[in-house]
Simulated assay, not measured.
Amino acid sequence: MSAVLTMYVLVQPLIAKLAGNTEWKQPESIPATTRSAFKKAPGRTDYQRGIYTIENGQFVVETTGNQSSGAFRSMSLANCFVVLERERGSIEVGETVQIQLFNLRFTKR
C-alpha cells in the first residue's frame, strides 16, 4: 500500500508535469462525515482507504476495513483516501474528516 500511496502523492504529479500538463492539480480535500470509526495514533499523517457516498447532498465516508499495508483488497473497494491529520487520534462515527477522491487523469482537457 505504501507504493500505491507514493504513486498517488508523488509520482502522479511528476508524470503529469513531465507530460506537459500545466493544469493538473492535486485532488481537493472534501469534508465528509464518518459512517464508521477509523483507528489511528497521533504522530503522523495517515491516508486510509475509504468508500464515500453522497447522501442528501453531503459526503459520507466509511472504512474499507483492514488498513494494513498488505491489505490489497481494501484498495479495490476504495474510491477515496481519508486524510487523517498528524495530531489526530482515532475517529468516531459522526466526526468530520477530509477525503480526497481518486484522481487518475493524466491528460490535458
Rank of each mutant, 00 (worst) to 15 (best):
G50V: 01
S2G: 08
E62M: 12
G57C: 11
R86W: 03
F38C: 02
V82M: 03
G50A: 02
S74T: 08
V4S: 07
C80W: 02
L10W: 00
G20M: 05
K17A: 15
I91M: 07
S69H: 11
I15F: 14
Q67K: 11
G20F: 05
G20N: 03
T64G: 03
E28H: 05
K39V: 12
D46M: 01
P13S: 05
S74F: 02
G43T: 04
S68T: 14
V61F: 00
T6E: 14
Q26N: 10
I15P: 03
K108A: 10
L77E: 11
G94L: 15
P13F: 05
A32S: 10
M1T: 05
R86Q: 13
T6C: 13
I99W: 04
E87H: 13
L10C: 04
P42E: 14
I51A: 05
M1V: 01
V61A: 00
Q48M: 01
A32L: 12
R49I: 01
K40E: 06
G70I: 07
T107Q: 12
M7Q: 08
E23A: 15
Q98L: 11
Q67H: 11
P42H: 06
F102Q: 06
R88T: 13
L84M: 08
S68V: 11
F59Q: 04
Q67C: 12
K17T: 15
N79A: 12
G50Y: 01
Q100M: 14
A19T: 03
F38M: 02
T6W: 12
G50M: 00
A41G: 07
T22A: 10
W24D: 02
M1E: 00
P27A: 13
S76V: 10
G94N: 14
M75P: 00
L18T: 08
R49S: 01
L77Q: 13
Q48H: 00
E87N: 14
L18A: 09
A37K: 08
Y47A: 08
K40F: 06
G89F: 07
K39Q: 12
E92T: 14
C80R: 03
E92K: 13
G43W: 03
